[in-house]
């Protein structure tokens, strides 16, 4: 039952993708579009298989930066949200800062970090990914912590539970769906940030750098092959976090 529903929801987007790619191939061949404008899907696929091992290596570098950013930014977001929920003043103080972080493109800071940590270090990229992840993690967790039902609050008060017990037994478990949703959103942001940060300098072995240098060398089909690698990396991050979310929600027994 569940399997067939999943298959049906998958079918529509997959069909759309196949049609789109077929149309793309058709148009490129029919109008003889030059590769530097838009390469054909078959061309990209060829370049992708040709340099597959290099794409995988580059994806590992970018993926590791994104992963470190996701873990550090995610944990920081949860922790700060717990304190902000306990201390009203803190959440009020943080509100404008978080709003600023949400609207400023953090990758714009990349050159500053390269100057700070040296051009050979990945640190700046990881910090950028972490900041990007922090924002949705903090906002979602804080929102989740505030969803407590009054009857549960009363219950904890009647038990004379400490703040630590209320957090551990009531607030955090209640916030889990919100935290996992934040993680899912954060996972895509982590990959995008880590990738774009490479455009501004630093070590040259990641996917982002591979895209810019292929394009600079007029290897447009190659650049698109790396873009495809980046898309797959983002999809992997999203898929894994979405999977964790679905698994955890099923295990916890509905809501």
């Amino acid at each position: 039952m569940r399997g067939s529903t999943t298959a049906r929801t998958m079918l529509a987007p997959v069909a759309l993708g196949v049609v789109a790619i077929a149309l793309w191939q058709l148009l490129v061949v029919a109008f003889e579009v030059k590769p530097f404008l838009v390469p054909s899907p078959s061309g990209i696929a060829g370049a992708f298989t040709e340099s597959f091992s290099h794409i995988v290596d580059a994806a590992k570098v970018t993926g590791l930066n994104a992963l470190i950013g996701l873990v550090v930014g995610g944990l920081t977001g949860i922790l700060v949200a717990i304190f902000a929920n306990a201390l009203r003043v803190l959440s009020q103080m943080l509100a404008p800062l978080v709003a600023a972080l949400a609207v400023i493109p953090i990758v714009a800071l990349a050159p500053v970090f390269y100057a700070m940590f040296g051009a050979a270090a990945h640190t700046g990229r990881q910090i950028i990914a972490a900041i990007a992840v922090f924002v949705p993690m903090y906002l979602n967790t804080l929102n989740g912590l505030r969803q407590v039902e009054p009857v549960h609050r009363d219950l904890m008060r009647s038990y004379a539970a400490t703040a630590e017990q209320a957090n551990r037994l009531l607030l955090l478990p209640g916030a889990v769906p919100y935290v996992l949703n934040g993680l899912k959103i954060g996972s895509s942001l982590a990959v995008i940030s880590a990738l774009i940060a490479e455009y501004f300098g630093g070590p040259a072995n990641g996917l982002g750098k591979a895209i810019t240098s292929a394009a600079a060398g007029s290897n447009y089909t190659g650049a698109w092959a790396y873009v495809l690698g980046a898309v797959l990396l983002g999809a992997l991050f999203y898929g894994v976090t979405a999977g964790i979310e679905a698994w955890a929600l099923r295990r916890r027994g509905g809501s």
Binding site: D154, S158, P173
Partner: peptide
């Protein structure tokens, strides 16, 4: 010990 008008069980 207290039992409320709503059961108030923790769903997880």
């Amino acid at each position: 010990g207290i039992a409320f008008q709503q059961a108030g069980l923790l769903p997880w």
